[in-house]
């Protein structure tokens, strides 16, 4: 029997899962690009990013180019947690098929 308690509850939410997935595809994402891809409201996106940041999964970089821009990236801990989360999902699917 699979131990469902192993699932990372921080990642296991649709909005945060989307953020973690996108952050895993590129070195960094701007707030606007994340918002455009995920179609989340500013408030929702900020809340999810803050949760991920508070848990050490996401690093935030603020810089001023031609205008102030905030970019987000996965930390080493975040990347490892995401990989573990994926492994657990695959194990669940495999267990159900056997």
């Amino acid at each position: 029997m699979f131990d469902f308690e192993k699932i990372d509850k921080i990642i296991h939410e649709k909005g945060r899962l989307g953020i973690m997935t996108l952050l895993a595809t590129r070195p960094s994402w701007s707030f606007q690009d994340l918002k455009a891809q995920l179609e989340l409201s500013d408030g929702n996106l900020v809340t999810h990013l803050r949760t991920l940041h508070d848990n050490g999964y996401v690093a935030i970089t603020k810089e001023i180019l031609d205008r102030p821009q905030t970019s987000y990236a996965l930390t080493a801990k975040g990347r490892q947690s995401f990989q573990e989360y994926l492994t657990i999902l695959e194990q669940i699917v495999k267990a159900a098929r056997q």
Partner: peptide, 13 residues
Amino acid sequence: QTSTEAEENLRII
């Protein structure tokens, strides 16, 4: 968590 949910999450990813 059910396998259906896991499959749905993998599809989203």
